[in-house]
Nucleic acid binder design. Structure first.
Length: 132
RNA sequence: AAUACGAGUUGGCUUAUCGCGUCUGAGCAAUUAGGCGAGGAAAGUCCGGGCAGCAUAGGGCACCCUACUUCCUAACGGGAAGGAGGAUGGUUGGGAACGACCAUUCGACAGCCAGUGUCACAGAAAAUAUACCGCCAAUUUUUAAUGGCGAAUGAAUGAGCGAAUGUGUGAAUAGCUGGCGUAUGCUAUUAUUCUCCUAUACACCGCUUCGGCGGCCCGGUCAUUCGUUCACUCAUUAAGUCUUGGUAAGGGUGAAAAGGUAGGGUAAGAGCCUACCGCCCAACGGGUGACCGGAGGGGCAGGAUAAACCUUAGGGGCUGAAAGACCAAAUAAGCGUUGGAUGUGGGGCGGCUCGUUCCCGUUCUGGAGAAAUCCAGAUGCCAACGCGGGUAGGUCGAACGAGGUGGUCGGUGACGGCCAUCCCAGAUAAAUGAUAAGCCAUUCCAUUUUUGUGGGAGGACAGAACCCGGCUUAUAGACUCGUAUUGAGA
RNA sequence: GCUUCCGUAGUUCAAUGGAUAGAAUUUCGGUUUCCGGUACCGACGAUAGGGGUUCGAAUCCCUUCGGGAGCA
């Protein structure tokens, strides 16, 4: 099972980001689970049968809570590492969300173990919600 | 050795697994092998430059910044070396005012005799040297005392009175004095004034019956005599007052008051004069320069503030990599304004979607004209700008540079020359992370005489975004050097 | 990236370089009332931090911190 994290799995397009964070959109699903607030979009219908195995994600750490760039970088790297090591949970079933945003909402810097635990739960919940 | 302060250096190390960014190689591709991968501040954005675009004949005004000297540098408000000046401490000259030397440290330090402004309170006065108080001289006038058929003064004689000096008591005031005290001050001494006591006292001299008695230095007053001077609607003395003049010594203040001390001098005073100290000018000498020393001269000018306006000298064109260049995609063949060119449509022919030395037709609106016709506009083409709308992808800029490291030479130093060697992040929603082990430093617990052993916690400030040179700020711990103090040893 | 402004009592604001930084309001204490309100009296401040210029700084200068606005 690949544990890589190439560029194609990172959400960079400004257009999709604007759609994801647009308020009141019916297509955007959202839920909260301890360290994160998760937003996701389903796979776009227009795309042909592509070999997309994993969704594209974006990680956000608020500047309002963490003033220093060093702290924000550390949290973002830990969250990304936790996703990279656990994203294989997605590949077991076919319908996966197209784009996911992880918003870090805790008020302190928490350890990698806790982030990883939260990430596993978030991915499982995301899968269940997407199927519905 | 420890502690404190200052300056500087450093800013955990190694390995494994899974990942990330970039470069090179292999592969049709999936993929794979190897190299490299944050800092001294990458931060703040406080300065300076490179680079890029725009503007630009030359000059000036305005605005902003800088300001001891020399040097370094691409440049700087940065740095180096130095010079005035200040502060603290110590030593020292002097009676004081005021200096001299040493150590440490600060050091935005051009110009208030170009102009303007400000200087609260207090104080006579706050920038003009002089109004006020005070001191002195003259003058006006008032009062008091004394004198006036004399008065003043000197001498002699006599009388009485006062009472000094040598020997005392108490009090007040002042001060540029001494001592003590951190200081308000206390004390001693001195000067002046006042008060009290003493004159039948003591001391001293003469006489003595040894019990006592008499005398005393000076001043003025009165009486008498003599000499000299003056002689009046006033005189003298004292106190006040008006006016004029001379003064700048003194006047409790204040952050700041126009040299200080001593002596002479004067009606009173004053650098008015003298001595010493301070100050100003300055021949000449030293230094690249700031500046330093200073023969000699001058009785002595001058408040503070320019981080107040301002003056002088120097500098600054504006905007910043979201600059700017190119490619691709997309929308509209739209609307408006301005300018330019010009007939337009159809057919034929060549050719194959463009051209034309050919033919045919000729629209609408307005104006002028008898008409032919002429003019203007619409429609159509091109360009620029704006609106509306679209896109928001990529390449370059952009990683070899005022580069790093080492050596050597020049320089007090900042720094520079030469030689050798190295290539050392380059992303674009943005790469350094996670896990495990060991070592290093710190700390806690247990054990141990100690060294040590075992276990746990746990790693300062902080993350490149066009690039450099500085400044400022943050920074656990370790190391080096210097200074001071303490302790131990020789 | 660039430009510019501000910071004063718990809050909203004053201040010519010149005593002890003032006003309103809040809070607290007291008086008045049987009690509460109202009214009256009183108290409470490191001028954001540090350094400098000046006899003297909230004010002038430098620097740090925090906040706001504008342009692209």
């Amino acid at each position: 099972m690949p544990q890589t994290f190439p560029k194609s799995e990172r959400l960079c397009s400004k257009k999709i980001l604007g759609e994801l964070f647009k308020k009141g959109s019916a297509t955007v699903g959202t839920f909260y689970l301890f360290p994160f607030r998760v937003l996701y979009l389903p796979q776009p219908e227009s795309l042909p049968e592509s070999n997309v195995l994993f969704p594209a994600i974006v990680i956000t750490v608020p500047k309002r809570i963490f003033k220093r760039a060093v702290d924000r970088n550390l949290i973002r790297r830990r969250v990304r590492e936790a996703y990279r090591l656990n994203k294989h949970l997605f590949s077991q079933e076919k319908p996966i969300p197209g784009y996911i945003a992880f918003l870090y909402t805790a008020k302190q810097i928490i350890s990698f173990e806790e982030i990883e635990k939260g990430m596993k739960l978030a991915i499982a919940k995301c899968k269940v919600k997407n199927v519905e």
